[in-house]
């Protein structure tokens, strides 16, 4: 049994008659899979009310295998209320972490990254419209940080192999898991990014709309091989029917 650990639920799905299987991101533990017994029975309605995504929780658990058993789950504050695009972004982040972060790999940084992002999201949605630009900035920062933490950080100063510095005025192609390669402007691939933009991304200078757009392109290309053939479902939520 562990002491109470701060955590957030990323995903929940029903298990047996009244139990839930929850995936959480927990401080110092990274991503965990747990069984939460009796969470959906009417007698224990207190856990069913709080075992929701975006609710700060305190968890204690036991078990050594892949699937652990939650012993207690308590709320440690009001839920982060997200709406519209910000809510869909929350689902997007949860999906990325569940798909990319390996189970049971300890990381303080992941929990830190997740909680700051949720805070930032809920604060940014209070800003007057249009706040979509700030939302995109938050998501891109998160994606690049996550890539770095997973060991797939992008080197924005040198080309692949580390021979040449990235120069403004040139065009580069990003090859996932390798790096930037000098490319001709006429190359029609999707991942062509200008040298200025790459340097801008390296400095996280995302307030510039042009650099932000390039960053989105770069993040997509870099994430694609890690996600395998299955695209992220939460992207569909941003598209209106």
């Amino acid at each position: 049994m562990t002491a109470q650990v701060p955590c957030f639920i990323l995903h929940r799905r029903p298990f047996r008659e009244t139990s839930l299987i929850i995936e959480v991101v927990a401080q110092g533990y990274g991503r965990l899979n747990l069984v939460l017994k009796g969470a959906q029975s009417s007698k224990k309605s207190t856990t069913s009310g709080i075992s929701q995504v975006f609710c700060p929780l305190l968890l204690s658990f036991s078990g050594a295998g892949e699937l652990k058993t939650a012993l207690s789950l308590e709320s440690s504050g009001p839920p982060v209320v997200l709406q519209d695009k910000f809510l869909y972004s929350g689902f997007y982040i949860n999906e990325i972490i569940c798909r990319l972060w390996p189970q049971n790999v300890d990381s303080d940084e992941l929990f830190e990254l997740y909680t700051t992002l949720l805070d930032d999201l809920s604060q940014t949605q209070q800003l007057p419209q249009p706040n979509a630009h700030f939302l995109e900035m938050l998501l891109r920062r998160f994606e690049f940080n996550l890539l770095r933490m997973l060991g797939f950080g992008i080197d924005c100063s040198y080309t692949f192999g580390g021979n040449e510095a990235i120069e403004a005025g040139q065009f580069y192609r990003y090859i996932p898991e390798e790096g930037f390669v000098l490319s001709h402007k006429s190359y029609s691939g999707q991942a062509l990014i200008s040298g200025e933009d790459i340097v801008g991304i390296g400095q996280m200078n995302l307030t510039n709309p042009k650099i932000l757009k390039a960053a989105k392109k770069l993040a997509r290309v870099a994430l694609a091989p890690l996600l395998g053939g299955k695209p992220l479902k939460s992207r569909e939520l941003f598209v209106n029917l």
């Binding site: 990323l10 799905r13 689902f91 997007y92 949860n94 999906e95 992220l232 479902k233 569909e236 939520l237």
Partner: peptide, 9 residues
């Protein structure tokens, strides 16, 4: 809607 279960609009 539950993107993680592959359920979209």
């Amino acid at each position: 809607l539950s993107p993680l279960d592959g359920i979209g609009p």
